[in-house]
């Protein structure tokens, strides 16, 4: 099998815009799932609301497309009620960090055996480009026309602090690394959180001088900095570029987890 066998061919092409990273992230996630040799009949994909959350509808498995922000709460019910099911959650920055922030930290705290893939495009794409909790300071959106004035969430750091067993961050440029990270997440008992920096040419790029999808990808390539390098620079007291995207594995541990199949 390949990741394409995990997609509902009759639902493609999907609704995402040209150049949207969500499709890439869906590919990488399902490629990792494919490597796990999971039975599609025993796999459940859960998502909330937003561009990212449409992903569930394209996966050839049982899928639950829920209400805004609540995907993790629904997934908690599925996984605790039937731990033998494999559960993957697709979510976005608005879905996970704004309206679903409470469920996010509590799912990490419970350390439920879920793999959560967050397509973080720094914006509310579905509703037309409003600022989200991860919109960087100064970035333009329809609700931050003079530049975002609020500090942004560091989702990976948040998941580490809240207790997730596996946390990684990559971008949609790092397809192989992302695939490996998702696989590591699927293999780790407990909550695995993979934040993926995603490009939204239509709503984020257009307002922030990243007009083409290729420009966005180039930015991901040049600005990404491995976590080990970042840590070394910080330890040595050397300057870190303010726009660096720290990528890599943030934590991998085996704290007590819930909902792990016996």
């Amino acid at each position: 099998m390949s990741f394409e066998d995990w997609l509902r061919a009759d639902r493609l092409p999907h609704i995402w815009c040209s150049g949207c990273s969500n499709g890439t992230i869906l590919n990488c996630t399902m490629a990792a799932v494919d490597m796990m040799d999971w039975d599609p009949d025993r796999t459940v994909v859960v998502s909330g609301i937003g561009c990212s959350s449409r992903a569930a509808g394209y996966v050839e498995a049982d899928s639950l497309h829920t209400t805004h922000g609540r995907a993790l709460a629904f997934a908690t019910g599925v996984k605790l009620a039937e731990p033998s099911l494999n559960v993957v959650v697709f979510t976005g920055d608005g879905d996970l960090a704004a309206i679903g922030g409470n469920h996010f930290i509590h799912a990490c705290r419970r350390n439920i055996d879920l793999t959560v893939v967050c397509m973080n495009n720094l914006i509310y794409g579905m509703t037309g480009g409003q600022g989200s909790p991860t919109t960087p300071l100064g970035a333009l959106s329809t609700t931050t026309p003079y530049g975002a004035a609020e500090p942004a969430f560091d989702l990976a750091a948040l998941a580490v602090a809240a207790g997730a067993n596996y946390v990684a961050r990559w971008t949609s440029y790092h397809v192989r690394e992302l695939e490996k990270a998702v696989k590591a997440g699927l293999e780790t008992p407990g909550l695995s959180f993979i934040e993926v920096r995603a490009g939204c040419p239509t709503n984020y790029g257009r307002k922030n001088r990243i007009r083409e999808a290729t420009d966005q990808l180039e930015q991901f390539r040049t600005r990404s900095m491995l976590k080990v390098k970042y840590d070394r620079l910080v330890a040595e007291g050397k300057p870190v570029p303010h726009d660096a995207i720290v990528v890599g594995e943030f934590v991998r541990r085996s704290n007590p987890a819930m909902g792990v199949a016996p």
Binding site: E4, H14, G23, C28, A31, S172, V175, R176, E179
Partner: peptide, 17 residues
């Protein structure tokens, strides 16, 4: 096995095969 395959994984629209 698949070698490279980066274009296929990257293609957001599942158009490369």
């Amino acid at each position: 096995r698949t070698l490279c395959g980066v274009c296929q994984l990257t293609c957001p629209d599942q158009a490369i095969h």
